[in-house]
């Protein structure tokens, strides 16, 4: 299915079609400190609690707006075979996909954008946890390959923002094959001598972590993000022990030498731009993060 909304229409216009998830009440409760937060303030603060700094999950559009300068373009992703296994559990895969597409307005769990970040050219690929847990199947693999090809074509770094429960079970072995396939994408960027940077967000686990998400030249994570190979329940069942405090959290990974840094969301763009600037010997020129406009102010078509 060609998703023209996703492929052709600029993000601002698209936002008028696809309804942002607006909570019924204007207050949200922080999972970190239980404080009640005014929804608008939360949006302005990119879904970070200003009492305790808890990082909630950030939607796809907001994530791209956070990192890219205005004027970026969304890169169309080639279509992939739908439901190659004719998979059905208690619900068919086709039906699950239909629901996920209706809920998110996206065709699958990864979007790719090309543009600038503090005036430096980049391609970013952003995984969308809201779409079937961000799971990696043929479409996510294709998005990564497309992103890598774009980065190589334009001679710019590739930044991948991850968020996924793992592989998409409903695509069986073909989802597993996206582990080597996404690694080929990483190799394409490496061979071109371009930086490949990974930003791990909450949560990133399973086959996604065990492939492209752990192969960055620089590994960055957001505070408190759950990052690991095996699920916590599986580990507890296997070893019959209680898991240590903070296990598989971003700070734990930093402590164990698995990532380079934990960067709060508000500093993420500037930090990425500085890193890219150093790796490609350019000077970033800061462009302020554009706040997502309130819904009422969206242009109508």
């Amino acid at each position: 299915m060609a998703n023209w909304l996703n492929d052709v229409v600029r993000p601002k216009i698209r936002a008028a079609f696809v309804r942002r998830e607006t909570p019924d009440n204007l207050w949200a409760k922080c999972p970190g400190c239980d404080q009640m937060l005014f929804h608008r303030e939360l949006t302005e603060n990119h879904q970070v609690c200003h009492h305790c700094g808890y990082h909630m999950r950030l939607g796809l559009d907001d994530r791209i707006a956070l990192l890219m300068d205005p004027g970026f373009t969304l890169v169309p992703i080639p279509e992939v075979p739908a439901d190659p296994l004719k998979f059905k559990d208690e619900k068919s895969y086709v039906a699950r996909m239909k629901d996920a597409r209706a809920k998110t307005g996206q065709s699958d769990a990864m979007a790719v954008a090309y543009g600038t970040m503090d005036s430096l050219g980049v391609v970013i690929a952003v995984q969308n946890f809201a779409f079937m847990g961000g799971s990696m199947g043929l479409a996510v693999g294709e998005a990564l390959v497309t992103a890598a090809e774009r980065a190589v074509d334009h001679g710019v770094p590739l930044i991948v923002v991850t968020a996924a429960g793992g592989a998409r079970m409903q695509e069986g072995i073909l989802s597993l094959m996206q582990m080597p396939r996404s690694t080929v994408a990483v190799e394409m960027v490496r061979d071109a001598g371009l930086p490949y940077i990974v930003v791990l967000t909450d949560p990133t686990t399973g086959g996604v972590t065990a492939s492209f998400a752990m192969l960055g030249d620089i590994q960055i994570a957001e505070p408190g993000a759950l990052i690991g190979f095996a699920g916590q329940r599986v580990i507890e069942q296997t070893i019959r022990e209680k898991l240590p405090e903070g296990f598989q959290r971003a700070e734990y990974l930093l402590e164990h030498g698995i990532i380079d840094m934990v960067v709060p969301r508000k500093d993420l763009k500037a930090k990425l731009a500085r890193i890219i600037g150093l790796m490609t010997n350019q000077k970033p020129v800061p462009v302020p993060v554009a706040l997502p406009a309130p819904e009422a102010e969206q242009p109508t078509v």
């Binding site: 065990a210 690991g228 190979f229 095996a230 599986v234 580990i235 296997t238 898991l243 296990f247």
Partner: peptide
């Protein structure tokens, strides 16, 4: 692959 604390 082994799912365990030390492996992680």
């Amino acid at each position: 692959a082994f799912p365990g604390i030390e492996a992680e």
